[in-house]
Amino acid sequence: MSEQFEQGKAAIGGWRAIVTDLAHCVRFYSRLPVPTLPFERDAHGLPNFTRVVRVIPLGGLVIGALPAVLLGLALVLDLGPWLAAMLAVAALVTTTGALHEDGLADVADSVGGSTREKRLEIMRDSRIGSFGAAALFLGLALRVGALATLASRLDAAAVMAVVLVVACLSRTAGLIPLVFLPPARRDGVARAVGQPARETFWLAAGIAGGIAVVLGALSGLPPLGIALMLILSGLAGLALSGFAARHLGGQTGDVIGAAQQVAEIAALIGLLTTVHP
């Protein structure tokens, strides 16, 4: 009896840890109003990414929920695929506080730096330069364009599932620099949140892949398209990691944000190549 009680207590503690990590994840990645849980010790501190990584795919689903619903509602109201896609991307940007877009712009601006130190200094500058502005415009245009074209070729339920899958996969792929590269700075958010174990990352990748396969199959997405979303989002994260290793000597929070953006674009375009009019 005592042994069963201890097992039950451990199970409850495990679920509490998962829910707490999910709450920290959603707070960190978005502006969504997540209430303080009764069993949380530090509700508004930086999340510990050595643990939080395992729930990143679930956090992506939470963050993508409102944009997906908004997209589906716009399509049902016959507002057209382009306006629906713009509303969905606007909701994503608003929900996350443009966290990832800021990272993409800062990494793009750093291209103008002549040395590693100068590039890191540029990335810390709150001002946006021409490279950053161009990257922001192109990133938003590619996301809206790909999503709008998908919305014109798929039914509302399927394209809502796409938003959820991409939100899940891209945030998981965005962790690749954090897991496989050392911090580029001695301070900064990327060092403060900790470096996850590779085993934990592969667990998260497996969960994200499972979510993509299940949601994709239920919504009728082509199997090849699902496979390309998985492969290309991962390759995009790896490519951004390789660039950061050569360009900066490691990763920063901006690099992680940029990796999420390129992974999202790659996943959308990969699916689009298999969905024909």
Rank of each mutant, 00 (worst) to 15 (best):
R41F: 07
A85F: 00
P47H: 09
D109C: 10
R116Y: 11
L79C: 09
V93W: 00
S114T: 12
A134Q: 07
L58R: 06
H100T: 06
V107H: 04
A108H: 04
D42H: 15
N48D: 15
I128A: 13
D106L: 06
M86V: 06
R54N: 10
L120T: 07
F39T: 08
K118D: 09
C25N: 12
I128M: 13
V55H: 02
L75Q: 03
A98R: 04
V89L: 15
G64W: 02
V93S: 04
R41H: 09
F137M: 15
A98H: 04
G45M: 13
R124S: 14
L79Q: 09
R119V: 10
R124T: 12
I56F: 07
P67F: 01
E40P: 05
R51L: 14
E121D: 14
A85E: 04
R119D: 10
G59L: 07
L104S: 05
C25H: 02
I12C: 05
V69K: 04
A10G: 07
D21R: 10
S126L: 09
P57G: 07
A43E: 09
A90E: 02
L37W: 05
T95A: 13
L75V: 01
P81W: 00
G14Y: 03
S130C: 14
S126G: 15
L71H: 02
F28C: 05
L61D: 06
V107S: 06
P33N: 12
S110T: 07
G60Y: 01
T20Q: 12
H24C: 11
L77A: 15
V111C: 06
G45T: 10
S110F: 03
P81R: 05
H44S: 12
P38E: 10
P81I: 06
L138C: 11
E117S: 15
A135P: 01
G64K: 03
A85D: 01
A134S: 13
H100D: 06
E40I: 02
N48G: 11
A91Q: 02
T50F: 08
G60S: 09
A65Y: 07
G132F: 02
R41T: 10
F49C: 09
G14K: 10
V62A: 14
L75N: 03
V89K: 00
S110P: 01
D109P: 05
E101L: 15
F137E: 07
G72N: 10
G72P: 07
G59W: 00
F5Q: 13
V55M: 09
V34W: 00
A23W: 01
